[in-house]
Design a protein around this nucleic acid. Structure first.
Lengths: 214, 214
DNA sequence: GTCTATACAGGGATAGAC
DNA sequence: GTCTATCCCTGTATAGAC
């Protein structure tokens, strides 16, 4: 692969420009609402050239999601380390994760859409990678809290982690619905939602002895 | 509307047969993987006829989702009424909802996919209807429990309800992922997941005085 | 090797006859 | 209401120019 081997920062060269355009367009409008012609136009190449670099539209799609996912991992809020209370660290993680999910709304849509696909044509390990990282961090954080006695040891760490990530993702994907649901006053206030969720979760995770003073 | 006015149970007549075929095919394979030609064939009519009854493929899709959603509401587990503990009723609701989400996997996929669509072309009120019903029941159930002192009154009922429904939906849509995530032992056991979630949630919702004996 | 030009198949959608 | 015929666009494949 001579073209990418140079990896020059300027003038990314055909394939890279195609990938960039594809990532942007797919994130905006999904898979089928985007024509390869359009991607080619925005990348400044011809349509056939797209098929030359990536074998098919589907492969290009997978490549775009994969590229986007590689940036996901690093964007999560850093952890303060064992000096802080697990409760604080979990709260910051949740808030950061929710913010990240909304900031990169296009990517989030892509990944969730990929999850719903009946036949995971090679893009599954990918979504796995997208979620897996945050998930692992959460689980180990919870386990840490359980080991130190700050959190209830009977709670299932994996279930708790899934609940947290799911809370954020589901909030994201039902945003448009929330204003029309009764009793929802956090529709346009992610911070308020995170506060409510952490409140609910910590009262559930906190050991009897600790954590009743916030 | 002379054709539907008869509403004869036999020989549903063109439009209805098209709708049935569309609902089945869309639920199985999603929007774009289905060709109008295929729907027409299964309905026993010509392609152009489909466009005559429903203006476009998209409109047909919306009509199919709407038709499917009308059955959703009634399928949720019935409520035992104020004779039972709110905790029991909530637990049963959650289990029933999760089961329903999986039983009608095709419909669930349709609705969730619809949520992700950037421009909600008239299908929003629909998804709203699909979720809104269960959501309202959950919120009022939680409020009831708060009024009776069984649940913490400071908790946000809407946030709790969203968390519960989100937990189920997210579990559904990440099923394929779960076996590859570390520490997950409920991947193929929805009942175990529901148990873990309710455990987490009730310790968070239960008032200090009550609910520490299960 | 890298790109362009062109040809083909299949999909959604329309017009108009019965 | 239903069909036949047709249009245009898109994904895909191939042939060939630099």
């Amino acid at each position: 692969m001579p073209s990418t081997a140079r990896s020059a920062p300027r003038d990314p060269g055909g394939a890279q420009r195609i990938l960039d355009a594809a990532e942007r367009l797919f994130a905006e409008r999904g898979f089928d609402a985007v024509a390869v012609t359009e991607i080619a136009a925005q990348a400044g190449v011809s349509k056939a050239n797209v098929f030359h670099h990536f074998g098919s539209k589907r492969e290009l799609y997978v490549a775009a999601v994969r590229a986007a996912c590689q940036q996901t991992t690093a964007l999560l809020a850093p952890d303060g380390g064992p000096g802080e209370a697990v409760r604080t660290r979990l709260g910051r993680f949740l808030a950061g994760h929710l913010e990240h999910v909304h900031e990169r709304a296009g990517l989030t849509r892509l990944v969730v859409r990929e999850l719903l696909e009946p036949g995971h044509n090679g893009a599954q390990e990918l979504a796995e990678k997208a979620f897996g990282d945050g998930f692992e961090r959460l689980v180990s954080l919870i386990r840490e809290g359980q080991a130190s006695g700050e959190l209830r040891s009977e709670a299932d760490p994996a279930a708790a982690a899934l609940l947290m990530i799911g809370a954020n993702v589901f909030f994201f994907q039902s945003r448009a619905l929330l204003p029309h649901l009764p009793g929802v006053d956090f529709a346009d206030d992610p911070a308020a939602y995170t506060r409510a969720v952490t409140d609910l979760l910590f009262r559930g995770l906190a050991d009897d002895a600790s954590g009743r003073d916030e």
